[in-house]
Design a protein around this nucleic acid. Structure first.
Lengths: 194, 194
DNA sequence: AATAGATTTAACCAAATGGTTAATATGGTG
DNA sequence: CACCATATTAACCATTTGGTTAAATCTATT
């Protein structure tokens, strides 16, 4: 992979993630990459193709696959708590990802077709097993996972609002997020305790 | 308020809410309203002003004010549960609102300045009072409210993904949402039980 | 009916934007 | 060096888009 191509991808990622497809300008990407606009088309033909390249690379990470964890044989509560922790740490490093992915799937629901569903499906199965054994409270798994993903994702899509309510600056917010995973784990345990 | 003006506002609301500012075309709004594009500028001068009109009208509803409820003297757990129920019902009727508001506040954080903060602030105070009395578990209120709002909002911003995972159609999804408020109330009670 | 003011329309405009092209530079290879 | 493919650039193009204008139509008041 050549240097120009990489500079373009890096710039495109930054612009597309923050501005979305409609809000992004090819010229802005070129400027950020420090190259001529024609290079974008030389390497990626069109805005659509450049965007799709970034999107496909990024949205797979929406349900980050933590292979070893989800297929391991530990009990569901520990498994989902570990997942929530790793997911939160992942989102701290990729704070723009949730809104980016959500927006593009809402705009073009066809993209959802390619979503890697193994993670949520494996988790649901893992939950059902333990719930039937009486190891966790029984409920509709969709309801459970909406709550869990909501707790994990909301801070990152609602950051400006949260900061407005709490009056925190970015440093405070990062601190709040560091403590977030412990709090989520606690909430999950309370919800699932039989 | 004259008829043309109302038709414009109705069309603008539909387009802006679903497509966002950048994705919306003045021509599309005019077409939907069934009038000439020049009328948009005649009544609202510019796209920005038309958008701001819609946004200000809509985003106040992100924290729907339920005056009687938040200032009532019932215990916090019942109060927040009732709030979650009413909020969910409100979102079922306004499913595009969360993503719309979130996107525009993320794009232009200055808008957060005008957010009506009385609702969250009153709720936090109400929580602190009861927590100190030992009526609910003590924790960082920001963490609590991120979980609650996350549980309420996530289904509406993640709808296409949820449907992909569960394989549900729109009818099924609406049914799932009807049961959502009971589930959230249960989760909140479990999280807050002292 | 005549006048005046508000409303509506078709045609137009300038800027922005995604995309193309033709010419030029660059770097490796015989 | 001469050659050739690749990489890069400036200038250009067609379309889209927000916005304007001048003329036409409607509405009420005298």
């Amino acid at each position: 992979m050549n240097l120009t191509e990489e500079k373009i991808l890096q710039a495109a990622e930054e612009i597309f993630l923050k501005q979305g497809y409609d809000g992004s300008r090819m010229q802005a990407i070129a400027d950020l990459a420090g190259i001529n606009k024609a290079m974008l088309h030389y390497y990626f033909r069109s805005k659509d193709q450049l965007f799709e390249r970034i999107f496909k690379e990024k949205y797979g990470g929406f349900f980050p696959t933590i292979e070893g964890l989800i297929s391991s044989q530990i009990n569901f509560i520990d498994k989902i708590c570990t997942f929530a922790e790793k997911y939160t740490l992942f989102l701290i490093e990729n704070p723009y990802l949730p809104l980016f992915v959500i927006n593009n799937i809402n705009k073009n629901p066809d993209f959802a077709k390619n979503l890697p569903l193994n993670l949520p499906k494996t988790l649901v199965m893992s939950y059902m097993e333990d719930a039937e054994k009486g190891l966790c409270r029984l409920m509709n798994p969709a309801q459970l996972f909406m709550s869990i993903f909501g707790m994990c994702i909301f801070p990152f899509i609602g950051k400006p609002m949260i900061q407005k309510v709490t009056g925190e600056n970015d440093e405070d917010f990062k601190e709040l997020m560091k403590m977030r995973s412990n709090e989520i784990k606690e909430h999950i345990r309370l919800i699932l305790k039989p």
